[in-house]
Amino acid sequence: MMRLLLIGMGTGDPDHLTFQAVKALNSADLLLIPAKGEEKSELAELRRGLCAAHLRNPATRIVEFAMPRRDVAREDYLEGVEDWHDAIAEAWSAALAAHPEAERAALLVWGDPSLYDSSLRVAARLAARRPLEVEAVPGLTSMQMLTAAHGIPLNGLGASVQITTGRRLRDEGWPEGVETLVVMLDGGCAFQNLAPEGIDIWWGARLGMKDQLLDKGPLAEAGPRILKARAEARARHGWIMDLYLMRKTAQRA
């Protein structure tokens, strides 16, 4: 039975792989790297850099495959994502089928496989079709990278934290009873829809990379700076991975 390793790679810095992740990487005889497309090109290069830094097993074969794109124009968001996951499962299945000799295949997953990542769901689709054991190897998340970069705790003292998406923040506003909000997958900067009074924000983009971007402060002051920095970064790179933490001012400690 083939074993599929989903290895959390953090945000691309070779120093952020755990010993467990390095061990798992070197145990694989097949490593799949998603490629194709302008955005995937840089991510593929980051994965190649991680392999150059940590892969010492000469028997590990590195194979690149075309990663399907999500149809962002679909009116039903969840239905569109489900179809996208089906397409990714087909791409994984084809890549694995082309190498039936592999017993331990691996994928380097951005951040951690458990946090706003589809890898475990896609793997479950594969496991429903063929004999397959799936193992998740945890990695540093961008949320941890953000709090470390700013030198702040994730939570206020004895207070609650909620992790959400830009889409939900835009549609639903600030959740009731929540002091700290971590917002991910926000291409539209949904913090603009909030009344900024009494809110502090800590923002980060391309965390862990040499050109990482950081900003912080009262939302009314930092918000416009973040919009400008984000637009400039998108113009340079064509894509950007960013997130932010917001806290009610009274809960900043």
Rank of each mutant, 00 (worst) to 15 (best):
K228F: 14
L181D: 08
A123F: 10
T180N: 13
I226M: 10
A195N: 12
I163W: 06
Q144V: 00
A148T: 02
A128P: 04
R125N: 12
D211P: 00
G204V: 00
V178I: 15
R168M: 15
P138I: 00
A235N: 05
W202G: 03
L194G: 11
L243V: 04
G177I: 03
L107I: 10
W110E: 02
M241H: 11
G187C: 05
N155H: 13
S119Q: 10
R168L: 15
G166D: 03
Q162V: 09
T164C: 06
W203S: 06
L207I: 03
A220E: 10
R247W: 10
G166R: 01
A233D: 10
A220M: 01
A124C: 02
Q212D: 08
L154D: 04
D186G: 09
L115W: 09
P196S: 09
R104A: 13
L169Y: 10
T141V: 04
D117R: 00
I199T: 06
P131A: 04
S118Q: 01
A106E: 04
F191L: 12
D171P: 01
T180Q: 13
L157F: 15
A231M: 09
M184P: 12
M209L: 14
V137W: 07
I201M: 10
L243H: 04
L108P: 07
P131L: 07
M246K: 10
G204L: 00
V183P: 13
L132I: 03
G217M: 05
T180K: 14
R104W: 08
P218Q: 07
G238Y: 03
P175K: 02
A159K: 14
R129L: 14
M241E: 09
A229C: 00
E197D: 13
G156K: 02
S114N: 07
A233N: 07
A105P: 06
A148N: 04
A250E: 15
P175F: 02
T164M: 09
E197T: 04
V137I: 14
L146F: 10
A128N: 07
L120Y: 09
T180P: 09
A205N: 01
A235P: 03
K228M: 15
N193T: 13
S118I: 00
A105I: 01
T147A: 09
M241P: 07
P138N: 05
A127Q: 13
R168C: 15
Q212A: 08
Q192H: 11
N193D: 15
Y116L: 06
Y244L: 08
G139M: 05
K210P: 15
I163L: 11
D211G: 01
Q212P: 07
A136P: 03
N155V: 03
L120Q: 11
L245N: 11
P218H: 05
R125K: 13
R129Y: 12
E232D: 15
M246D: 14
L115V: 15
D215P: 04
P218F: 00
I240P: 00
R170P: 04
I163H: 08
